[in-house]
Design a protein around this nucleic acid. Structure first.
Length: 815
RNA sequence: GCGAGAGUGGCGGAACUGGCAGACGCGCUGGACUUAGAAUCCAGUGGAUGAUGAAUCCGUGUGGGUUCAAGUCCCACCUCUCGCACCA
């Protein structure tokens, strides 16, 4: 018997597949296409088994789809620019380029050992010129379209990473990468106008039926659409106006004050001169507060009366204008109408400053106004709109506002523009030049890429490191030829990763980022697999860039990913794997000990792939046992001589039925979406059934043909999960061609048929016995068979009231 | 607080449109083979009461309900995980 030498087997077949180019995808084919994409990794270190889960799932799908006759594109690459790799390189005192490339080589080697079927000829690395040239090209396209702009803004600043961050990269007030509390800095920064796409990004989520609901919900929350009205208030005695956004225009008659954000430009204009000095003290105090604390739920509300009054356009009432700490400049208009009776924040504020509370909605239920009421009700004290039902008749309110010219119905979004400038070295330089004469000039396409110089001082100082490189900065203006300087900021890594799935289609193309006809053929991605941590950031940005490129005529589709699968994480000892915790399980160690096929199979068997799972050393042992057991059994079958073909015995028919039951079950698990854990358990059941047969039936009576059929089908079904194992045994069975070229086996409904089945008999809801009945027995016959059964009759003391027969399942008798 | 999801043996987890709960694996117990161990193979394994192969009862977070029949459907609640959170 051949020994199961997994190390030898795996290296041999990996070499063979590679040499034959089995996984190189033809650009076109008469087969239907299938684009199977996994989220590419940050090469900021090496891989642990948690990363591997992503690739094993992707590979199972890719290999299955190939067997189903698809032309499968299954590429891989590295999200190589950016903070994670740069920070790690600085820690290690290594140049980020060298560190990144070293990691890429390690990761590539790690993945090749697992036997993932990537088309390596399409590998993409975002930090090489051939790639980031096109990231810069995309920037220029956005710039030309007015979707990339520079502005002075209060931005999130990470004092440790010493760079600005996008809103999406701030989690609970801290830097998403390093966990340091984020501060605010006023800087001139580049933004992408993603807010122009807010409505489409929101509405098109409904089209993404192949996305998990929770991811769509997170995106909806993040985009944060609110329906409301913009209403203008005159400032008494001036020609100034204060515009507010409100979702409750029905409470307009209940306004008793106005609240401005401290940053609002209106503050300076409405404050009375004699209050100026005191106001400045108030503002200084507010700005000294931590921004995230200031806007936290528990924060004490504070305000300062400007001395001015606003006129309520609905009823002409004068209300005082305050500057407050709880109104945000970034959302809406930076000004809010205060309705204490129907908004809790306004209520708290009014209580503190002795502002009147005026009720304008009559609650539908009993309510004591010890807090604000924001439930349904009827409008009161509201002029001609009194009596309007809220929220049912809100439309009447909008109509009235618009007719009177007081306000306008609009949508407001929480989404802000995407801040893409980083004051760091390791990224794609922003392709913009500043000329003394011509001002801001985009780098002409022919001059791309703007190369990131290798020999510069790259340590973060808070200033863009490229500032310090005269060689990089000093250029001549592309327009007038005069002296000019380059923009020294680099782009956010998420710009790089927002289009990489397009580059895989034509990774080596030098005159364009991609060919439209090729991209239109391959995209959208049929199946995208990755972690939930990208539910907002990467997935939202990719959708945005895809829509922009679509609008500019470069793509025919406007959503990049048709189906999305978010896999769960692998924990060890209850924690995420991390070097600092020392709980990392390395795929290399596992491959050393058990082989790649065992590792792959165990990862798929651990549990439902979308759920988090705990790594269990005993669990992988169990799967390894299954592999070895299968190896031994199939080898034994291989060693058998072809016997005579006889009419199958009952015992053989039973095994054949099991084979086809499992063919059906596993096929359904594969088609029904990522049920690999039960598919693997089905393979185990099949092996157990073969083994039982061989145990029970004397060796000389074994039906060799049937056993070989079982072994073949088993190998075909396990091949997407344990490809080396399957290939080796396939060849040992005498097959000349690779198992990779085979098609997925079909099951035969007829083989599933049985003459006689066992059904349960329930009496008063309890299973009392099981009886055998002919498969197509009539209701009458089944009832008769049951009633003639002594064991059943024992439980029936009076005439049955009701008898229900569920065909092929059970008989229920009620007395 | 708002939104989403989940609670099943000692553990990871199965269970189609309501139809025999606990597939498969781990662990555990006993046995075979061994001088012994490892490995392998065979048998058993939800709980309780029985001297048993018998038999009975209880069992899917809690309490109700619908139904011949509920892990699955409905109502109320508890716990956990995740996301959002002064967004006007």
């Amino acid at each position: 018997m051949h020994k199961y030498d997994f190390a030898e087997i795996e290296t041999r077949w990996q070499k063979y597949w590679d040499e034959r180019g089995f996984f190189q995808t033809p650009q076109y084919s008469n087969k239907p296409k299938y684009y199977m994409l996994v989220m590419f990794p940050y090469p900021s270190g090496t891989l642990h088994v948690g990363h591997v889960k992503n690739y094993v799932i992707g590979d199972a799908v890719a290999r299955y789809k190939r067997m189903r006759g698809f032309n499968v594109l299954h590429p891989f690459g590295y999200d190589a620019f950016g903070l994670p790799a740069e920070n790690a390189a600085i820690d290690k005192k290594i140049h980020p380029y060298d560190w990144t490339m070293t990691n890429i080589n390690t990761i590539r080697r790690q993945i090749k050992r697992i036997g993932i079927s990537y088309d390596w000829s399409r590998e993409v690395i975002t930090c090489v010129e051939e790639y980031y040239k096109w990231t810069q090209w995309i920037f220029l396209k956005l710039y030309e379209a007015g979707l990339a702009y520079k502005k002075m803004a209060a931005v999130n600043w990470c004092p440790k990473c010493m760079t600005s961050l996008a809103n999406e990269q701030v989690k609970d007030g801290s830097c998403e990468r390093c966990g340091t509390p984020v501060t605010v800095k006023h800087l001139e920064q580049w933004f992408f106008r993603i807010t122009d796409y807010a409505e489409r990004l929101l509405n098109d989520l409904d089209k993404l039926t192949g996305w998990p609901e929770h991811v769509k919900t997170m995106q909806r929350n993040w985009i944060g659409q609110s329906e409301g009205a913009k209403v203008k208030f005159e400032v008494d005695g001036t020609d100034l106006q204060i515009e507010v956004f409100t979702t409750r225009p029905d409470t307009l008659w209940g306004v008793t004050f106005m609240a401005l954000a401290p940053e609002s430009p209106l503050v300076d204009r409405v404050v009375l001169p004699h209050l100026r000095e005191e106001l400045d003290k108030f503002l200084a105090r507010i700005w000294a507060q931590d921004r995230f604390k200031r806007t936290a739920l528990e924060a004490e509300k504070e305000g300062f009366f400007t001395g001015s009054y606003a006129i309520n356009p609905a009823n002409g009432e004068k209300v005082p204008i305050y500057v407050t700490n709880y109104v945000l400049m970034e959302y809406g208009t930076g000004a809010v109408m205060g309705v204490p009776a129907h908004d809790q924040r306004d209520f708290d504020f009014a209580k503190k400053y002795g502002i009147p509370i005026k009720q304008v909605i009559k609650p539908t239920q009993e309510f004591t106004f010890d807090k604000a009421y924001d439930g349904p009700g009827i409008m009161i004290n509201s002029g001609e709109l009194s009596g309007t039902l809220i929220p049912d008749e809100m439309r009447r309110v909008f109509k009235w506002l618009e007719e009177k010219g007081i306000g306008k119905r609009t949508f407001q979004y929480k989404l802000r523009d995407w801040l893409i400038s980083r004051q760091r070295y390791w990224g794609a330089p922003i392709p913009i030049i500043y000329c003394e004469k011509c001002g801001m000039v985009p780098v002409p396409e022919k001059d791309l890429p703007v190369k990131l110089p290798y020999n510069v001082e790259f340590l973060p100082t808070g200033q863009s490191p490229l500032m310090l490189s005269e060689e990089f900065r000093r250029v001549t203006c592309p327009k007038c030829g005069g002296p000019a300087v380059r923009d020294a900021d680099t782009m956010d890594t998420f710009v790089d990763s927002s289009w990489y799935f397009l580059r895989y289609v034509n990774p080596k193309l030098s005159e364009k980022p991609f060919l439209k006809e090729d991209v239109d053929y391959w995209l959208p991605v049929d199946q995208y697999v990755g972690g939930v941590e990208h539910a907002i950031l990467h997935l939202l940005y990719s959708r945005f860039i895809t829509k922009v490129l679509h609008d500019l005529g470069y793509l025919s589709f406007d959503e990049p990913f048709t189906n999305l699968f978010t896999q769960g994480m692998i924990y060890k000892d209850g924690f995420k794997m991390s070097k600092s915790k020392g709980n990392v399980v390395s795929p290399d160690d596992m491959i050393e000990k058990y082989g790649a096929d065992t590792l792959r199979l165990y990862i798929l068997f651990m549990g439902p792939p979308e759920k988090d799972a705990e790594w269990n050393d005993a669990g992988i042992e169990g799967v390894h046992r299954f592999i070895k057991r299968s190896w031994n059994i199939i080898n034994e079958i291989i060693s058998l001589k072809e016997g005579d073909v006889q009419e199958p015995s009952e015992r053989e028919k039973q095994l054949l039925r099991k084979l086809h039951t499992m063919l059906k079950k596993i096929t359904e698990d594969m088609e029904g979406g990522f049920k690999f854990n039960t598919a693997v358990s089905g393979l185990m059941e099949l092996i157990n059934a073969i083994s039982d047969y061989m145990d029970e039936v004397p060796r000389e009576k074994w039906n060799t043909k049937l056993l070989r059929e079982c072994a073949e089908k088993f190998l075909l079904m396990i091949s997407p999960f344990a490809p080396h194992f399957a290939e080796e045994l396939w060849r040992l069975m005498g097959k000349q061609e690779s198992i990779m070229l085979e098609t997925w086996p079909n099951y035969d409904e007829n083989a599933l048929r049985v003459e006689e089945i066992e059904i349960a008999v329930q009496i008063n809801g309890k299973v009392r016995d099981r009886i055998k009945i002919p498969i197509d027995a009539s209701d009458e016959l089944v009832k008769q068979l049951a009633m003639n059964n002594d064991r059943i009759r024992k439980y029936i003391d009076k005439e049955p009231k009701k008898i229900v027969y569920v065909k092929g399942r059970l008989l229920s008798i009620t007395c």
